[in-house]
Design a protein around this nucleic acid. Sequence first.
DNA 1: TTCTGACATACCGTAAAGGTATGGCAGGGT
DNA 2: ACCCTGCCATACCTTTACGGTATGTCAGAA
Lengths: 294, 294
Amino acid sequence: MDLRHLKSFLIVAEELNIGRAAMRLHISQPPLTRQIQQLEEELGATLLIRTNRGVELTEAGLLLVEEARNILALTEQAAERTHKAGQGKLGRIDVGIFGSGIFGVLPKILLAFREAYPEVNIVLHNMNKREQIDALRQRRLTVGFNRLLPDEPDIAVELIVKEKLYLAINSKQALSKKKEIPWAEIGNHPLVLFPSGARPSFIDWVLDLCRADGIKPWVAQEVGDAVNGVALVASGFGICIVPESATNMKLPGVVYRPLIRNPPPEVDLSCLYRASDDSPILHSFLAIARTFRD
Amino acid sequence: MDLRHLKSFLIVAEELNIGRAAMRLHISQPPLTRQIQQLEEELGATLLIRTNRGVELTEAGLLLVEEARNILALTEQAAERTHKAGQGKLGRIDVGIFGSGIFGVLPKILLAFREAYPEVNIVLHNMNKREQIDALRQRRLTVGFNRLLPDEPDIAVELIVKEKLYLAINSKQALSKKKEIPWAEIGNHPLVLFPSGARPSFIDWVLDLCRADGIKPWVAQEVGDAVNGVALVASGFGICIVPESATNMKLPGVVYRPLIRNPPPEVDLSCLYRASDDSPILHSFLAIARTFRD
DNA sequence: TTCTGACATACCGTAAAGGTATGGCAGGGT
DNA sequence: ACCCTGCCATACCTTTACGGTATGTCAGAA
């Protein structure tokens, strides 16, 4: 069965006159007559009763009109949806996020993407760095966000923003009176560090900076992410070094102060994706994400 | 969009290899490659990622697989259903019946038809003779059943059975002791006649018979149909002439006795339909009905 | 490097689809 | 009663497009 035949048949059923229907279809009458004949032969059913004043529908014809309307509507919709999917306007995107990532530019990117592509279903997955890379390779993720990413050949990494570092301090501590904290001060207080899993990570980068400056940090506790770190600061465990985005997390008894060092300490927030992935949804997403680059 | 292209695409999506898919479709590889290319161009979306080991589906392709499965299944079903409708195996038939018709051969015909054509929806309409003919002309009925039908050029009438006449008698009457009742006896008892509407009808035919025999009937009451007539007999209104089929209606206090006359009094049960109607459902139905002819 | 397996391209022949002209049939008007 | 008109069907021709064969191109494996 041919969709063109169904379309023709529908027009004939509307006009009840093969000649007029042929005009509407921009073909001449004989081919249309033949199309209907072929359709009837293929279906093994008489669809039209030919009269001298035109045609009328049989019951089989009447039934086929309903079915054909359905089929053609479904087909149009399928074409439309496939086209949209091809442009990255329809579908699903799995985004890997991490603990403190949720406070900074990431929600702004997600919101902008949702507004630009409302028919793309955004699914968020909380994962650490290692899990994100594995999930990307297994196609469980389309894109991930993280910091301090290793250079792997099949995973592309794009810097989104560099964030300055802040020190989370319990407001009862004298240190909280200072407007800015010199980097060297880190060595003088018990330190809460994160994240605990998936080395090397933010922890190691901080420790490397300290080693470079000849500072011996006093590590009081390792925690999973910035949220837990700042929570411990609130209850007086010590100080905690966090990226700027985490300062959006207001907790009672915690203040944030900029850390001063030369060169200024900055940590990246990057997105990562399969280098070989050229799916339109990913690239629509990356285009939005890039507008948030400094 | 072409259904053949969708079919081809589905096979390609199953094989993930254009060459193998072409073999399954019994065509060579280049035309299939072109079909997919045309499909992609028409939809404005990349459906396949060509690799050196075959092809894989894009998200748009994955979506189209689902849509295509739907469309093709619906199309097959439409063809199947239309074919059945063309054979009179699927659809709807509107059958006009009348009061006492429901007791005799009519339910047997309906049952046989329902068993032979289970996918045809039988809709019954209780109508008198005039209403049936009008409804047929307006296509609200496919076929009707009635007695003593007038000869009209556009309405075909086919005799199904001739029924002998019986007399419904209250069992308290002395008359009920007789095994058979001579026709002339009718004049000696109060008579319940039916149907009341749509003259000429059964009533007139009975009165004509009486007139021919020189009998003056004593008409006690006219009622709408045999059911009401026999009910009045049960409560002692008088006697009532009924066709054989109505004797299936057992009411307490009513007995049925054959009426004897020369020639024997018989009334027809016929079906009627539009003479120009050659719809397969009607003719399937008529074929079943004819098997019940004597 | 070469070989293999896969998809893409070029070109040709045939089959299917459309166009023109005409036939056949049934109603309605004269 | 006849012809005229409108409509669908048929015959025949033209054009389109679809499939087949041969070949190109590319990437990964031996």
